[in-house]
């Protein structure tokens, strides 16, 4: 058996599936705790993943979260198919949201998702093609050298 030095996790995220949203982040959190990673780092990863999950649930037609965990860092990829983001700079502003009313009534869509994700990660990148897809990449270091 060839032993890998990283963990790869993949979660399919469905559009509007609020009941399962949060499963990915809570699974990842559990694994990081088993790895013995510092609580603050675990929390950052959990929040970043959760917000990414919610964005896919709320805004896209569905997508996935991929996570790579190594001894140095955690990489999170949130990839979806959907309307994309027309103005990324605007979307990154705190409080800006395109979430419709019925989503806001559920307590989401406060316009904090992307800014929160960026705040939690050490490296952050977002790319989007309108009417096609959005891809977010986040890296959180476990041991900053």
């Amino acid at each position: 058996m060839n032993e890998k030095n990283f963990i790869k996790l993949e979660y399919e995220i469905l559009q509007n599936d609020f009941t399962r949203a949060g499963e990915a982040s809570s699974n990842i959190k559990k694994i990081l705790k088993q790895l013995g990673i510092e609580a603050k780092i675990v929390r950052k990863v959990a929040i970043a993943t959760y917000e990414a999950e919610m964005n896919i649930v709320i805004h896209s037609y569905g997508g996935m979260i991929k996570v790579i965990i190594t001894e140095q860092y955690v990489d999170i990829y949130a990839i979806d198919k959907g309307p994309g983001i027309k103005d990324i700079e605007l979307a990154m502003k705190e409080g800006y949201s395109t979430a419709p009313n019925h989503i806001r009534e559920l307590g989401f869509g406060a316009g904090m998702g992307l800014p929160n994700m960026k705040r939690c990660s050490d490296e952050f990148n977002i790319e989007s093609i309108p009417n096609e897809k959005t891809e977010v990449y986040m890296r959180i270091y476990i041991n900053k050298i």
Binding site: I7, Q34, L35
Partner: peptide, 16 residues
């Protein structure tokens, strides 16, 4: 107490 191993590389292997 949830920690699988003191060594993170070893813990990663254990998760796999």
């Amino acid at each position: 107490t949830m920690k699988l191993d003191e060594n993170i590389v070893e813990a990663i292997r254990k998760i796999e």
